[in-house]
């Protein structure tokens, strides 16, 4: 677990890339129980006016916290995690969608022994999560 006294606001604590394929979406659908067909059927996605099959917002949220969990020494140290879903991640049938996740220290509360980690998750040059913040107990 990182030492809270060694951290400064602005420190980048994790930076990781992830490839999301259609397989990833099927796997997440099964694991989460979210079987909305817009996450695996092109015809259904098109029929409701979407630009293509979309990754579950919750998959993007779940992937994005992974590097922070590793950095924090376990999921039990994540005490609060919230995001806004601002842009969809379109996953084509062939090529994977590439996500970049960057975790930066946004605030340090030494008395409570907690830090706020701000997440920037990017797909095709745009951030797809807004106000993505996790409070981590150190």
């Amino acid at each position: 677990m990182p030492d809270i006294n060694s951290l400064s606001v602005g420190d980048v604590v994790a930076e990781t890339g992830f490839s999301i394929t259609r397989d990833s979406l099927v796997r997440y659908a099964g694991a989460s129980g979210d079987f909305n067909p817009i996450h695996y059927r092109d015809d259904v996605a098109a029929s409701v006016g979407l630009p293509g099959v979309l990754a579950h917002g919750m998959l993007t949220m779940g992937i994005s916290i992974g590097p922070v969990v590793s950095w924090a020494g376990g999921a039990e140290n994540i005490v609060d995690y919230g995001v806004r879903f601002t842009k969809p991640v379109v996953v084509p049938p062939g090529e994977p969608a590439e996500l970049e996740v960057k975790a930066t220290i946004g605030q340090i509360d030494p008395e409570a022994g907690k830090v706020r980690v701000d997440l920037t998750t990017t797909f095709e040059g745009n951030t797809v999560l807004g106000k993505a913040q996790a409070w981590v107990k150190l």
């Binding site: 992830f18 990833s24 796997r27 997440y28 099964g30 694991a31 989460s32 129980g33 979210d34 919750m58 998959l59 949220m61 779940g62 992937i63 916290i65 992974g66 969990v69 590793s70 376990g74 999921a75 039990e76 994540i78 995690y81 996790a134």
Partner: peptide
Amino acid sequence: FANATMATDSNGETAPPTFPIVIQE
């Protein structure tokens, strides 16, 4: 669930932070 969210350190003991979505659902 950890594998599906591409977590690298799943031990099957502690739930990943977004797992409660399953309960919310």
